[in-house]
Design a protein around this nucleic acid. Sequence first.
DNA 1: TATATTTGTAACATATTTTATTACAGTATG
DNA 2: CATACTGTAATAAAATATGTTACAAATATA
Lengths: 135, 135
Amino acid sequence: MISGKFAITIHILTLLHQFPEEYLSSEFLASSMNVHPVLVRKEIANLKKNNIVVSKEGKNGGSKLSVSAASLTLDTIFKMTFETVNLGYAKNTPNPKCPIGRKMNEKLSDLYDEINTKISSELSNITLEKFSNQF
Amino acid sequence: MISGKFAITIHILTLLHQFPEEYLSSEFLASSMNVHPVLVRKEIANLKKNNIVVSKEGKNGGSKLSVSAASLTLDTIFKMTFETVNLGYAKNTPNPKCPIGRKMNEKLSDLYDEINTKISSELSNITLEKFSNQF
DNA sequence: TATATTTGTAACATATTTTATTACAGTATG
DNA sequence: CATACTGTAATAAAATATGTTACAAATATA
């Protein structure tokens, strides 16, 4: 099971980019992706923490992009919504008495680090503008 | 939550490579990674289906590599243990009435396809032998 | 200023997925 | 023939993700 944070965040940003002049409500955004508005607000909280959107409370409130879509790359979103991508660990606690088990997580981590670097470099070539303009 | 299939399978293969002449039991393998032997047997079933290991039932039975560790790359394991790696979908059913929502999963899929290709090409440079010789 | 609407957030409930456990038939070894 | 394995299904438990409810605080606008 992979949390939909990345997808939800990309979806939010795409919508915000498509309606650049308006403050879009979490309910409107949620209805496009068919998830609960509270989930949307949680991801928006994360986007705000990273200074990517601004929100306005109260009536006619909502959220709006606060950076240019041409300068925001998907790599940033990737790093915001994943600790790291990994392909899993057998367990956090392999047997320390086994010389292989003892070092397995470390070696898997090294491997996953390489993969993350690749993904990041791939995503750093895709701006929100470019992604959004596919629609 | 990411299933540990990849990690468990790599762990199994590393142990099999370290003890190339022996049939290793699922209990021995499981004790190195501290998971349940039945989980190990399930991954071994997958490895057998892909003709990477052979097993012997009965007393003193267990599993053994049936391919050379130098010719097996981690890419093969990746493809065996993941449908695809993806960064998640907001939901399988975004709102079809929304022109953005309607096409989102398709565009995310395209993106994830690119990422998978990168990961595969990265992993195809790492043989089991190379990985295992780190220990 | 009162009302309606929206964010922000916490607390809890439900659903889904992963992992563990139990059970037992089948098979090879000695 | 007893023992020690695999193979596999069925079920239980644990972990995680998602949904829901609730409500305080903020703000537009009637």
